[in-house]
Computed example of a mutant assay.
Amino acid sequence: MSDRTISTRERIIEAAGKLFHAEGIRAVSVDAVAEKAGLTKRTLYYHFRSKDDLIAAHLEARDQPNLDVFKRWFHATEGDVADKIQGVFNSLAASAMHPKWKGCGFLRTSVELIHMPGHPAIIVGRAHKKRVEDWLCNVLEGARTPEDARQLARQIVLLLDGAFSVVLLHRDASYMRSAGEAAALLIRKTQP
């Protein structure tokens, strides 16, 4: 693959991401993405077989950067694992206060595609959420059994995704901080 091809593909994904974030995936046409990227629809279809593939590629491009942000916030927070996990929630709360914040793109996409459980973007979203859970499981293991760490990681994912939804609904970032407090309490109560 040449540098030009990579550049064009990335430009399409970037244009799609801006539009999807602003308007939602169902509201955005392939024509609009091509126009935003400054190329023809034919060129777009050269790089992506369908809008479905483009949506999935957009989420794949967000997967690792989103997880890296969680890791960065975790490591930037002082204290024990409970404090650090709470720090991730607090950083999310600060992000949620931005007027353009729209929650979790993986969750928003799953809502738009709820009737299509086999959609490529749903599969990418599911994989992303699993990677977040796996990361949490790794940081929680320590003296816990792998089974206990997995259970706790799942509970924290539920707090995280629930907080994304409620904060988006109420436009009140304090729900994210409350979820972080609950996560820290849960971690401390389950310490061996």
Rank of each mutant, 00 (worst) to 15 (best):
M1W: 10
R4V: 15
I6Y: 10
E10H: 06
I12L: 03
G17R: 14
A22D: 05
S29K: 14
V30M: 11
A32D: 11
A32L: 11
G38D: 15
L39M: 13
K41M: 11
R42Q: 13
F48S: 04
S50E: 04
D53W: 06
A57D: 10
A61P: 00
R62P: 02
D63S: 14
P65C: 05
P65W: 09
W73V: 00
F74E: 01
H75V: 00
A76D: 13
T77Y: 15
D80I: 03
V81I: 14
V81R: 03
D83K: 15
F89G: 01
A94V: 15
M97G: 01
H98D: 08
K100G: 03
G105A: 03
L113N: 03
L113Y: 01
I114V: 10
G118H: 12
G118M: 07
A121D: 00
V124W: 09
G125C: 04
R126M: 13
A127E: 10
K129T: 12
D134Q: 00
W135Q: 05
V139F: 08
L159N: 04
L159P: 02
L160Q: 04
D161E: 03
A163R: 14
S165P: 06
L168H: 09
H170R: 14
M176W: 10
A182K: 13
A183P: 07
L185E: 12
L186T: 12
K189P: 05
K189E: 05
P192W: 07
